[in-house]
Design a protein around this nucleic acid. Sequence first.
DNA 1: GGTAGGATGGGCT
DNA 2: GCCCATCCTACCC
Length: 191
Amino acid sequence: MILPRSFYTRGTVEVARDLLGTVVRHSATSGIIVETEAYLGGDDLAAHSARGLTERTRVIFGPPGHAYVYLIYGVYDCLNLVAEPDGQPGCVLIRALEPLDGLDVMRERRPRARGAEDLTSGPGRLTMALGITRAECCGADVCAADSGLTVEEGPDRGAFEIVAGPRVGITKCVDWPLRFLLGGNRFVSRG
DNA sequence: GGTAGGATGGGCT
DNA sequence: GCCCATCCTACCC
């Protein structure tokens, strides 16, 4: 049920697409991934790993199937899942979830959310709703049942269309179609 | 319906 | 000192 490490030991784009429909679980809450973005190695200047291996980006260069959580704009934590074989950079930003378990807990963690669509429809929102912090989760092994942060096979919901487009909020490599979302899903971060 | 602007702190030059 | 892989509010149609 928990996705095996071999799932992540592949090209980042493939992993980003295949993560759609799977389930992220942490601290009494879970959600189905409906939007992802791939951040590659090589000449992807939008990726944190583009400036090389540093203390912060060490996890991205490490073994696949681990969580890379970072602070954005000094305010919010964002969740990534590391792909590619050990030693090669590449990770997938989780941008939106469809809430699955623990909706009441999510509402307590996000008192400002008006409807269910506001709970997890954004990279900063979903970490708040699931209680994911970089202090607790950065570097966590999402393939290990006892890690507290796991990614599981999702419920079978038949065929769905994957829509690709430019990544959100970046200024470099803006034309690369590395954002993926479930077509027509109302829990995506935008459009 | 839309958007402009502020909050806020770590990472890197 | 500048740059952010964002969110929320206020205010304006």
